[in-house]
Amino acid sequence: MEKQIAIIGGGIVGATAAYYLSTLPGGQQVKVTLFDDGLGQATTAAAGIISPWLSKRRNQQWYQLAKAGADLYPQLIHDAQLGTDVYQQTGTIVTREIPTDLELLFDLAQERRQTAVTMGSVTTLTAAEVQAKIPLLANAQPGVFISGGARVDGAALVAGLLAQATAKNLTIRRERVHLTAQGQVVTSLGARQFDRVIVAAGAWAKELLAPLGITADVRPQKGQLIELAVKDYPIQENMPVLMPEGERDFVPFGHGKLIVGATHEDDGKFNLQVDPTVTADLFASAQRLMPSLTTANITGTRVGTRAYTSDFAPFFGPVPDHEAILVASGLGSSGLTTGPQVGRLLAGSALYGGTPDWSEYEKPLATYLKPSAE
């Protein structure tokens, strides 16, 4: 008898879970339905940097999860037959103006490299060497170069993973759904019972879990970035991504496309309107690195809603007292890095059951999911 699995949310976690549910052993005995209305999703608005190794976060569980996510990417991209327009290991440059800060950053990179083979090589670069690698820059600072760093286009990644899964066992329904107190999925056609439900709806997880008598520690945060058309250098497709000190992330793609951002706007919540003031701030950051830019170079903006917990750590796993329902949320701005690993773990749990121990990657779920009476 076929197992019926629902996924609520088609962002990085939901799309990766759908992909693995179509490729893991036993997937041929599963029918998967993914529900997503397409509004506000963080992943499709995101283009980001896969380079968690120099993070100063003290949460070691988060670091292990992010490191595992970075490690997973090359194999995932290869297996899903996705191209360099989706993901490419171009390397990452993190800049520091003060020499002692640069030395500390290099020492941290060398230390982290001992347990992170995916980092590749680590070297320090002068300002001139940084500019040689990213000739778009006019005002470069010295930095640390990590050859294993990568860039990823969130929308293209999700589209590619869902296309692979749809060819096998996935049906996509473009609608908003909710859960009943019994864990049924209420759709436009009525309530439906699934063998497993994966709630991967980001900041909307709180609303979805409420009928189960669960209060989720998760809040929305608005993020906005800009796309710019710039000079198309022959090497641009292989330019490193840049995390400049004091400025927004700087992500060159091929064919003269540059992404700058994204912002972290706590007061923006679920607002998906482009804020001209924020656009101006993002552009000013880009212009400080490339003074020749004008607003005519702006070709578009993207806005999405991230999910954060009060301690900025993600959570995922079976919902307490509702073991057939799995949830993931709170990935924040590291969603593109941590999401694939979370989606893979949830897919395995949905297929095979059991009580997996993911304490290496997260605090107990009870930290974030409380009975509503409390």
Rank of each mutant, 00 (worst) to 15 (best):
I7N: 05
D357N: 12
T305S: 07
G256F: 13
P220I: 03
H178C: 11
L39D: 14
E2D: 13
A347D: 03
S349F: 00
L136N: 10
Q41Y: 08
G317A: 01
A47T: 15
T338D: 14
A163Y: 09
A313R: 13
R219M: 14
T277R: 07
Y19H: 12
P356Q: 11
V274L: 08
K363S: 08
G223E: 04
H264V: 08
R192L: 10
G304H: 04
Q61V: 10
T338C: 04
A163H: 04
L102M: 06
A262P: 04
L76Y: 04
H78V: 00
Q184R: 06
Q131T: 07
P340I: 11
T90Y: 06
L105T: 15
V158R: 06
L108M: 13
A138F: 15
L39V: 11
G354Y: 01
V278M: 12
A68L: 09
T301G: 02
G11K: 05
K168R: 13
T279I: 05
V327C: 00
V278C: 02
V303F: 11
L209G: 03
L331Y: 01
G160I: 09
A45W: 04
A296C: 13
K56S: 15
S51F: 02
S285L: 09
G339A: 10
Y352C: 00
T295W: 09
Y19W: 11
Q81W: 11
R151H: 02
A167K: 09
R57C: 14
R174N: 15
S285H: 14
L289I: 10
P211L: 03
A6V: 01
D36V: 08
S372K: 11
H255A: 12
V177Q: 07
K269A: 09
D153M: 03
P371A: 15
L208Q: 02
R302W: 10
V218H: 00
A66H: 06
M119W: 03
T279D: 15
G27N: 03
T33K: 05
Q28C: 02
F315N: 00
P244Y: 04
R344C: 00
T294R: 01
A45T: 10
Y63C: 07
